Simulated assay, not measured.
Amino acid sequence: MKKKHRAFLKWAGGKYALSDVINTMLPKGNRLVEPFVGAGSVFLNSDYDEYLLSDINQDLINLYRILQRTPDKFIKDARRLFSPENNQAERYYQFRKEFNASADPYFRSLIFLYMNRHGYNGLCRYNKSGGYNVPFGKYKRPYFPEIELNFFAEKASKAVFICDGYRQTFSHAKPGDVIYCDPPYVPLSKTASFTSYAGNGFGLDEQADLANAAEEVTNKRNISVLISNHDTIWTRKIYEHAKKQRSIEVSRTISQKANKRNKVSELLVLY
């Protein structure tokens, strides 16, 4: 049995648990293109010769590029932040303030990882001004993901990281590529909407446009596209032209209360 690899970032909607199922639906190809790479679980647990990994979150892409170029230095510097004296609310909020005031990519990458592991429930969220605003998480001993960082850095030799929207990322795809899309999911209720992890929302118009983009790239350039989302009447409708649909039940992991982590249906559609 092939060993599965966890992402070094905690991530709402991460695909570690679903990576096996996703791999069974991903067609063979030379390169996997991901317009919504997130924490990179599909990248880490798939086997393509090359990867084009994109996200609109500039902090995320800067972190990946730095880890790709100077893994030993970055891991050594990041490890210093994971200490008991830094696992306090006062220190966390000071780091968050310095992060929001800084334009230095290396410093922001270090603090981004620190806040991801010390912040509330692994959320990544910005306010409308672009300020990171996730509160302190109150964990006893935040885990430093050294093994996961090293594996990511090693596999990143196959990858190119870009910060772009999904339409722009689609434009880079060529015959022989496979595209996997893991967009912010359609909310299951009016109070469940969480689409602003990079400072700008991903609403129903964008959801429908992504489905259109998948259909276009499949028809015009003969490139396969796999998309994951919540299984709802609305998503079934916008993906009606996909050649294959598969519904699976998954456990919800964003709630801190175990009794509220109900199973929900997710949809995987292949164009």
Results as ranks from 00 to 15, higher is better:
142 P>V: 07
34 E>A: 07
218 T>N: 15
174 K>L: 12
75 I>W: 07
92 Y>A: 00
7 A>Q: 02
166 Y>I: 06
48 Y>S: 04
251 S>P: 09
102 S>H: 05
10 K>A: 06
126 Y>W: 04
10 K>I: 03
36 F>C: 07
205 D>K: 15
10 K>P: 03
248 I>A: 08
112 F>E: 00
122 G>V: 08
177 D>M: 06
148 E>I: 09
165 G>N: 06
174 K>Y: 15
226 L>S: 08
60 L>R: 01
7 A>H: 02
225 V>M: 03
66 I>L: 12
257 K>S: 14
215 E>S: 11
188 L>S: 07
49 D>G: 12
245 Q>F: 12
153 A>V: 07
51 Y>G: 03
264 V>L: 13
13 G>W: 00
42 V>L: 04
74 F>Q: 05
81 L>E: 06
84 P>Y: 11
130 G>M: 09
3 K>A: 13
24 T>D: 13
185 Y>P: 02
37 V>F: 06
124 C>W: 00
6 R>T: 10
8 F>D: 01
146 E>I: 10
191 T>G: 08
179 I>D: 00
117 R>M: 06
129 S>L: 14
147 I>H: 14
33 V>L: 07
114 Y>M: 02
54 S>A: 15
181 C>G: 01
101 A>S: 11
46 S>N: 06
163 C>K: 02
187 P>L: 01
219 N>S: 13
10 K>G: 01
251 S>F: 10
41 S>M: 09
23 N>L: 13
242 A>H: 09
43 F>M: 08
104 D>Q: 04
50 E>Q: 10
212 N>S: 15
73 K>R: 15
48 Y>L: 06
152 F>N: 03
129 S>V: 10
155 K>H: 04
127 N>T: 05
266 E>H: 11
168 Q>E: 12
207 Q>V: 01
167 R>M: 12
242 A>M: 09
70 T>V: 14
168 Q>S: 15
65 R>D: 08
40 G>C: 04
22 I>T: 01
106 Y>N: 11
150 N>P: 09
143 Y>Q: 09
228 S>L: 07
158 K>V: 05
102 S>D: 07
227 I>H: 01
140 K>A: 12
177 D>S: 05
216 E>A: 15
180 Y>P: 00
238 I>C: 01
114 Y>D: 03
139 Y>S: 08
118 H>M: 11
169 T>Q: 01
101 A>V: 13
44 L>V: 03
88 Q>N: 11
115 M>S: 05
203 G>M: 01
68 Q>K: 15
174 K>E: 10
45 N>L: 09
234 W>L: 14
95 F>A: 07
39 A>Y: 01
26 L>I: 04
79 R>H: 15
204 L>F: 08
184 P>E: 02
106 Y>C: 01
3 K>C: 09
132 Y>V: 04
